[in-house]
Simulated assay, not measured.
Amino acid sequence: MSQGDERGYGGSEPGGRSDDAYSTLGGTRQTRTRMHRSGEDPDGYGRRPTRNSRSLVMIVGVVVLLIAAIAFANQGGGDNGGTGKAKKPDAAGVGPTTATGTKPVQGKNGTIAYGFAHDEQGAQSAAANYAVALVSADILKPDRRAQIVQQIFIAERAGELDAKFNQAYDQSFLDKIGLDADGNAAPGLTYVSRTAPLGTKTVAYSDATTTIEVWCTGVFGTAGIGSTNPVSNDWFTMSLKLQWTGDDWKVDSFAQKDGPAPVNTDRTASNADEIARAVEEYGGFTYAR
């Protein structure tokens, strides 16, 4: 699970998960359905008769018409003005998150993007990138944590939240997950905290403030021989209240809740070395609406 679960900083929702932010949740194994083999007659009626030529011609004709209709629809003659960009969802955030093709940000400050557009799309992109930063491995490193707080929170909240983060991620907490005072794993071990947003939803929007929900999955734990905190995955939704300040979207407060989570598969887990190499070899993304 992500290390920030329900520790009281940033969010306003009481209760929820236990204090052990890295406990492993059990999951129902996905069942497999046995498909009939070729040549089997599942319904007992024998093989169906071969279609006649007239039926085949009709089917081909229908397919050709469908292809023609799809091609005409893709010529850009709809409500999007022929730009080829997806229509913007309505103010209530109804509908799936769709890519627009618009450049999401002006640049990056370290690993965190900045310069988001002053519109709903920009707010959603900001929320997705900030969710990644708030549950990253860097948030457990005191020096890097102070920089993250200054970068993504509004100035009025930065000092207060920095103190709350420091209290939440004290040495007692770091000891539980096998990290030293600087947030580093023991020699031979690799601490993993990688989050991937799956989608965003606008709960409320205005030019000054907005509330965005980000549905996320991620991997969290310590990889390596002898680790007492093995890497596992989690699913959660983060709600971020943003303000437009200093020509960018910044976080005023945030909260987190479990799920929605899919059924676990029966895929064999990778060993600790594979996980550690993956974290080192695969970089992160700048997330955009």
Results as ranks from 00 to 15, higher is better:
S2C: 12
S2R: 08
Q3Y: 09
D5K: 09
S12F: 07
E13W: 03
P14V: 08
R17I: 01
R17P: 04
R17V: 04
S18W: 09
G27V: 11
T28R: 13
T28V: 14
T31N: 07
H36V: 11
H36G: 05
R37I: 03
R37Q: 13
R37G: 15
D41V: 09
D41P: 07
G44K: 06
R47S: 12
R47D: 09
R47M: 13
R47K: 14
N52S: 06
S53P: 02
S53D: 13
L56C: 10
V57T: 14
L65C: 12
A68V: 15
A71T: 04
A71Y: 11
N74T: 14
G76L: 07
G77L: 14
G78D: 13
A86R: 08
P89T: 06
G95K: 10
T98L: 14
T102C: 03
T102D: 13
P104T: 09
G107C: 05
N109Y: 08
G110W: 09
G110F: 10
A113T: 09
G115I: 09
G115M: 04
G115K: 02
A117E: 06
Q124K: 15
A126P: 05
A128M: 15
A128D: 01
V132C: 01
A133R: 03
L134I: 10
R145S: 04
Q147R: 07
I148K: 05
Q151E: 12
I152N: 01
A155H: 12
R157V: 00
A158Y: 04
D162H: 04
D162G: 13
F165P: 01
D170T: 04
D175L: 04
D180C: 04
A181Y: 00
A181K: 12
A185I: 06
T190K: 10
R194N: 06
A196C: 00
A196K: 10
K201C: 06
K201R: 14
S206M: 11
S206P: 10
T209I: 05
F220L: 07
T222L: 06
T222M: 10
A223I: 13
G226P: 05
T228M: 06
V231F: 00
T237L: 04
L240N: 01
K241F: 02
Q243L: 09
W244F: 14
G246D: 11
D248E: 03
D248A: 05
D248R: 00
K250H: 13
V251H: 01
S253R: 05
F254V: 00
F254Y: 05
D258N: 11
D258E: 11
D258C: 01
P260N: 00
V263D: 04
N264W: 05
T265Q: 03
R267N: 10
S270F: 04
D273R: 12
E274W: 02
I275F: 02
A276H: 04
V279L: 02
E280Q: 15
E280T: 02
G283S: 13
G284W: 03
T286K: 02
T286V: 15
T286P: 00
